[in-house]
């Protein structure tokens, strides 16, 4: 019988996984950068979003709303509503990270889907912490590099519609949504939310359709039987 293969040292496994995730989100960041400048944000505003906000769904929501003709404040609202899930991630991570003071201030910036998934996938708290920080740092680098590349590529294009870039945000949201739709209930919620948002859109100010959907889903979550 062959000798059992030496297990990959946990740290090397973490670095490899983190780089894989970072490269994949770098590609996502390229499309964000392109969509953002196509929506009318400047190169510096686009890059500032990736540095300062650093949470892809919210960034895309903001520039998507602006690109579709909504006001910037409707975009701010959409970004904040989508960012609420990071609060739940933070609650889950705080007992693992045990970060205080400046370290907590920095860790907060990295509390996103990918770092949470990497951290809670590990049972040893020390490895969890390492996975969180390594993934956060790698993502931050690739996310911002990808944003810059996408923004530079699109900035030169006079009319983004020629390349169909106005059709890109819904496709990007769909790609983000798809992994969450593996069961019947989220699929039904998604369809109902889209219908409600479209139905109320002509009747209310920009941004309010999202607020209505957020309120309805919160009521649904609070009232339904477990």
């Amino acid at each position: 019988m062959a000798a059992p293969a030496t297990p990959t040292p946990p740290t090397r496994g973490i670095v490899r996984d983190a780089l894989g995730i970072a490269i994949a989100s770098g590609a996502y960041a390229v499309s964000f950068g392109a969509i953002s400048t196509a929506a009318g944000l400047s190169l510096i505003q686009t890059c500032a979003l990736s540095v300062l906000m650093f949470t892809g769904g919210s960034q895309l929501a903001l520039v998507g709303v602006v690109g579709a003709g909504g006001s910037i404040w409707a975009g701010v609202l959409a970004a904040a509503l989508l960012g609420s899930r990071n609060t739940l991630y933070g609650l889950r991570l705080s007992s693992i990270l045990k970060a205080r003071g400046p370290k907590r201030a920095l860790a907060s910036h990295f509390v996103i889907d990918e770092t949470t998934a990497m951290a809670i996938a590990r049972e040893d708290p020390e490895l969890s912490r390492r996975a969180f920080w390594v993934t956060g740092l790698a993502l931050f680098v690739f996310w911002n590099a990808g944003t810059l590349i996408g923004a530079l590529a699109t900035e030169a294009i006079p009319d983004p519609k020629v390349f169909g870039l106005d059709a890109a945000p819904p496709a990007a949201f769909l790609a983000l949504l798809a992994p969450r739709l593996r069961a019947r209930e989220p699929l039904a919620i998604a369809l109902a939310s889209a219908v409600v948002a479209i139905a109320v859109l002509p009747l209310v100010p920009a941004g309010v359709p999202l607020l209505i959907v957020a309120l309805l889903i919160s009521m649904f979550g609070a009232l339904r039987k477990p």
Partner: peptide
């Protein structure tokens, strides 16, 4: 559930 609903509404 919130991101599911909001992403769908945005789409």
């Amino acid at each position: 559930l919130i991101p599911v609903a909001l992403l769908a509404a945005l789409i």
